[in-house]
């Protein structure tokens, strides 16, 4: 499988990244060389092999439904790019 310029642009849009025109060919080339590498996988017969998502095949441990957190708004919002009246501000959200 190989990617062309418009596919790279689509992927960039999905990832909310901007690829400048002059970088585009560079991206196309390096992504394709990585995907060429990845295509080695296609030769392996994995029929019936269960994907391994967790190396230890472990299962979930549950947390009791008890409140453990207190209000940390002031501390947490110190890292916010823009906050006002306790809210994080962003450019207008249009539904």
């Amino acid at each position: 499988m190989s990617l062309d310029r418009s596919q790279v642009e689509t992927v960039a849009k999905l990832a909310r990244l901007k690829v400048e025109d002059q970088e585009l060919d560079n991206y196309v080339n390096s992504l394709n060389s990585i995907l060429d590498l990845a295509d080695q996988l296609q030769a392996v017969d994995t029929e019936g092999v269960e994907p391994l998502a967790n190396p230890l095949d472990a299962t979930a441990r549950l947390r009791p439904d008890t409140v453990t957190e207190t209000n940390q708004r002031e501390k947490l919002q110190k890292n916010a790019p823009q906050a006002e009246a306790g809210l994080f501000l962003v450019p207008k959200v249009i539904d």
Binding site: M1, L3, Q7, V8, V11, A12, L14, A15, L17, Y27, L31, I34, L35, A38, L41, Q42, V44, T46, V49, E50, P51, L52, A53, P55
Partner: peptide, 24 residues
């Protein structure tokens, strides 16, 4: 970019799922 592509519709099985199978 690579990761976004590998998870995108139509490629997930060929890339991510396949890689996780290989992982096993």
């Amino acid at each position: 970019m690579v990761g976004t592509y590998a998870l995108s519709a139509g490629y997930y099985d060929a890339y991510y799922r396949k890689a996780q199978q290989l992982r096993r």
